[in-house]
Design a binder for these strands. Structure first.
Lengths: 191, 191
DNA sequence: ACTTTTGAACTGACCGGTCAGTACAAAACG
DNA sequence: CGTTTTGTACTGACCGGTCAGTTCAAAAGT
């Protein structure tokens, strides 16, 4: 078994368990068990439970951010926005547990690690912010738009809607959800 | 010390600690300590840590829902939407810890209590849904609007934006945040 | 040979829950 | 009126169990 493969198995196991029970309640024994390896392997590979969690967050956010950035690439600003929203839906559909973990563990109040988690989340939100900024620069969106708040609004809206979608109506086609979200964003709600 | 007073002190202490560390990591000893009473008192009043948490969720969601419902009362549909969004911002501003707890502990995957938590959260979202439904009935919003998804989107958007607001720019006037959100919802983003 | 993994045993801290007992005020009693 | 009882709210030491983290010798993989 290669080291990276073991690491990935541990990642997915930890993501699932932490999404289900939260970081504190997910025991290392159980994570190792679900990943099909021994407890010692966790400590050989990561050194500590916290380090495993941090590595996992970075790994996941890296992929998440890359997926969003990749979706926007080479598109006109407004198309890019639509593509980023879709990419966020797709990513969450495929990595539901990670999304739950992200939402559950990164909006804590005070403490020690939240800085890391918060920065990571911001980095994800910033991709949306960049897309909005381009749209403003291209004259597609109002010049006085508060890009920071809007980015956070779009990202958060899609995140929570996606989780409700997976939880309550998983059979619903993604395009419908995407269409509703884009209608909302483009002001096509009012008559 | 009256029973209800003790209960409320335990509520606020538990809300703060769970928002900071999560349910599993918030120890009953510490909750009791911060509330200024003994551990036994928690068990005398609630019977278990889980029961304390459930009671606390119901207590908080009751107030949250009432605040939203009260804000919408007697207003024309579109004004009601604006008022509900503002009420959500106000409530989160005043009960930031509870909002963090709500977001962190109610989007878990499987398990035992999530039903309770999820239903409770839905009950809050449903207030937004009702407002949207009235607006559709009044002809202010498109008849084919997917009210469920839109309600979840509005609620989630405001929730995450409010938390970012409290965390990153607490000095910013609430009206600005509110205005940006309403611009987003009314399609005043595009040029 | 060298890296990686195993799995079991152990430690020490911490945590949820229990329970016998305290404090005390309002009733019931004589 | 004094005293006894009762019920409520609370206390905090204590118990059984769990868990992160350590250690290590042996096996497996490359």
């Amino acid at each position: 078994m290669s080291r990276t493969e073991t690491r990935e198995r541990l990642f997915t196991a930890a993501i699932e368990l932490i999404a289900e029970r939260g970081f504190a309640a997910a025991s290392v024994d159980e994570i190792a068990g679900r990943a099909g390896c021994a407890k010692g392997t966790v400590y050989y590979n990561f050194g500590s439970k916290n380090a495993l969690f941090t590595a996992l967050l970075e790994y996941g956010v890296e992929r998440f951010g890359a997926a969003l950035r990749g979706a926007a690439e080479g598109l006109a600003p407004l198309d890019a926005l639509s593509a980023v929203v879709r990419a966020e839906l797709v990513f969450i559909g495929e990595h539901e547990s990670f999304a739950r973990l992200l939402i559950a563990e990164t909006w804590r109040a005070g403490g020690d690690w939240p800085q890391a988690a918060r920065l990571i989340r911001e980095r994800t939100i910033d991709v949306v912010g960049d897309v909005l900024r381009s749209a403003v620069a291209a004259g597609d969106l109002r010049a006085d738009l508060d890009v920071g708040t809007a980015a956070s609004a779009v990202f958060g809206m899609v995140l929570l809607v996606a989780l409700d979608w997976r939880t309550l109506q998983p059979d619903r086609p993604m395009d419908e959800v995407h269409a509703t979200l884009m209608d909302l964003l483009r002001g096509r709600i009012t008559t």
